[in-house]
Design a protein around this nucleic acid. Sequence first.
DNA 1: TGATAAAATATTGTTAACAATTTTATTATC
DNA 2: GATAATAAAATTGTTAACAATATTTTATCA
Lengths: 239, 239
Amino acid sequence: MSAQFEKNDKIKFSEDEVLRQIEQAILDHRLAPGTKLKEVQLADLFGVKRGMIRKVLTRLAHSRLVDQMPNRGATVARPSVKEGQDLFATRRVIESAVLQNLVTHIDHRGIAHLRKMLRREQKAYQRGDSATALTLSVDFHRELAALAGNSVLEEYLHDIIRRTPLVILTHLGDDEQNRCRNQEHEAIIDALEKHDLKTATRVMQQHLLHIESKIQHKPEKPQADLATLLRRQPEAVQA
Amino acid sequence: MSAQFEKNDKIKFSEDEVLRQIEQAILDHRLAPGTKLKEVQLADLFGVKRGMIRKVLTRLAHSRLVDQMPNRGATVARPSVKEGQDLFATRRVIESAVLQNLVTHIDHRGIAHLRKMLRREQKAYQRGDSATALTLSVDFHRELAALAGNSVLEEYLHDIIRRTPLVILTHLGDDEQNRCRNQEHEAIIDALEKHDLKTATRVMQQHLLHIESKIQHKPEKPQADLATLLRRQPEAVQA
DNA sequence: TGATAAAATATTGTTAACAATTTTATTATC
DNA sequence: GATAATAAAATTGTTAACAATATTTTATCA
């Protein structure tokens, strides 16, 4: 009468919190592409009702992080190589447009803000905290889009950024190749400050092509059980 | 014991069909921005269960055609002027990228296909069937994206095209100004055939700016009841 | 009359039980 | 032992009843 109750012996999570945790588990590579996501199992795991898991899975399916098949449930999505290429190509288009907006709209305050973000990112690298560095690196791109002031472009870039890690994982593996080189971030800020669109765009294209060029097929990894994989490793938590 | 049962005296619709009908009612301007969408009313109207309406409303909210507020239900979305501008600006970015892809990838078969679509569009205009002409005009843009072969770009353009009529309705009204001029469609095909990216892009930009320039604020219209508005007018059906 | 509070109604949100379907296990047959 | 049919279990899908919240109506008082 004890063991079977342990699973519910925890705080109840909100829908957004459950979404965030599952999404993070996917993006942290703890849930491999193709992994079955069973509703009751997840519901018990988080101590919530099945209906909520259902809604969460639908939301995740919408952002293409999971696949849903009628009557056959949800699995972690396995994006094709082609989808990955299209995603990267579109990202180059979006980020170019962002820069084009920025080069006319940005002011000293914006530049200063970007430099502050860059410094935090560099410090994280220097102290070897690559998890934080990666987060901050992504935030840099997001912040560029936010400063550009076009909500639709921003929305699309968020969508792409959300989907990208899964593509990389699926076809490149967990090889730590997928992070930004922050010298390029610095070069982009410098160019923006001088209102030099051409240089900013060129550096950005290099920057993105650098990752894109590495996508290629890779065999699947063995898989542990769902509960273990959802449990986040302490050392991976960002500072 | 008769009148109150009439409402259910019809075929049961599938979820996709219900979604399609409500979306069409919004895009046809039969449901004005801000209109409350009550779950039981819609469920009775379509002869389906409330849970299905619930799912449909969530899907519509996701594509920003309806707003959902916790505990306060769903309404037809009222996009801001800013959102409309951002949508159009992004559309120009996406369509430019589509042309850039097309100008290198397109072959004679593709060109022939586009010309066939253009002829159908022109014929619809000539016989005064503006509803069909509008549909075909939109299809032309969609087809460009499909031929470009980037699924993400295509997806985003679909999203923008889906959201655009509501923006135009909200801020411009039902003034019939919002259709493409198909001479420009022809010019785009001509330029693509000659692999002339510069001309194709220039015409496309004009084409899109033509509509974009007309967005401005406009007072609200009076509103009939939901059941009437959902019932589609026969003459509006496409040929 | 106009404002405020309370009650009644309407609407959205959640849940547990059930139904339908798929998946796994078992049995039967060759 | 392999294969196919059958039964059992697991899983997803749906629904009706209930709970929570918001809105409208009515009642009360200044």
